[in-house]
């Protein structure tokens, strides 16, 4: 953004976002949001700036900036806002306006993989089952956990649980605590072999449709396996 050239107000379109339901127009520029934001100052960002630019019709500039992506949508800003502006939802909306190929990092790629293959890693079903069984064998070697097995696709179990992709990738150790608890509690549980992914990166990219698909698949798993209760720690 050229900071030196004046921006002509009459060329902007403040009405462009009137239909959005985040109440950005209510901003009184009090800067409460900017004062609580942990990332204010980075990249000259602060929430008030974003809110004001959107309400002045400078949406493109905000979409092109890094601001919505260095924000974690933690919600401190909107909690302090005296006018009740949904600032973190607005951030998410701004994120959604970034074209997929320009979304930073691996978010778009991971989401596309999830929509196509059921998980962010494109991990084939047989590899997934192999990892689960391998880690399950390790758990079964622990004292008191003899005979432990991972129940996969168990119809009529009480609990279905999802898996965070990092637990079948770099952090397999972290699979074990839940399994130990299940075993100790004598819980009747299971993992689905398809669409087991617990994360939904559509949440981060502002893609509501993708979120619906991912959540729908989990619901579908519950129907298929006739399970009423979901444990979804992601």
């Amino acid at each position: 953004m050229a900071e030196n050239q004046p921006i002509h107000i009459e060329a902007l379109n403040p009405d462009c976002c009137n239909q959005w339901l985040y109440q950005q127009d209510a901003c009184l520029t009090c800067a409460m949001c900017a004062s609580v934001c942990p990332v204010a100052g980075v990249d000259n960002y602060d929430p008030r700036k974003m809110v004001r630019m959107v309400s002045l019709g400078m949406v493109d500039q905000v979409v092109q900036s890094r601001w919505p992506w260095i924000c974690t949508m933690c919600g401190k800003c909107e909690q302090s806002c005296p006018m009740g502006i949904d600032i973190s939802d607005l951030t998410r909306k701004i994120r959604s306006l970034r074209e997929g190929k320009h979304v930073p990092g691996i978010l778009s790629k991971g989401l596309a993989a999830a929509l196509e293959t059921g998980n962010n890693l494109s991990l084939p079903k047989e590899d997934f089952i192999f990892i689960l069984e391998d880690v399950g064998d390790e758990v079964a070697e622990e004292p008191g956990l003899e005979g432990f097995t991972v129940p996969i696709d168990k119809k009529g179990a009480r609990i279905l649980t999802t898996i965070h992709n990092k637990l079948v990738n770099t952090h397999t150790e972290d699979l074990k605590p839940w399994w130990r608890i299940f075993h100790a509690a004598g819980e009747d549980w299971t993992i689905a072999s398809d669409n087991w992914e617990g994360t939904t990166w559509g949440y981060f990219t502002g893609d509501d449709e993708a979120m619906k698909v991912m959540a729908g698949r989990i619901v579908e798993n519950m129907r298929r396996l006739e399970i009423d209760t979901l444990l979804w720690p992601e």
């Binding site: 942990p38 990332v39 980075v42 990249d43 890094r66 992506w69 260095i70 924000c71 974690t72 949508m73 933690c74 401190k76 909690q79 951030t91 930073p104 990092g105 691996i106 978010l107 991971g110 990166w201 949440y203 981060f204 990219t205």
Partner: peptide, 27 residues
């Protein structure tokens, strides 16, 4: 209600903006 974010939310662990993310976690 008043806690401060750790800086790892909102997908920031995957965006590649690591310096910003680490700075975010200072508080």
């Amino acid at each position: 209600l008043h806690q401060t974010c750790c800086g790892g939310g909102g997908g920031t662990l995957t965006t590649g903006y690591n310096d910003e993310r680490i700075f975010y976690g200072r508080r």
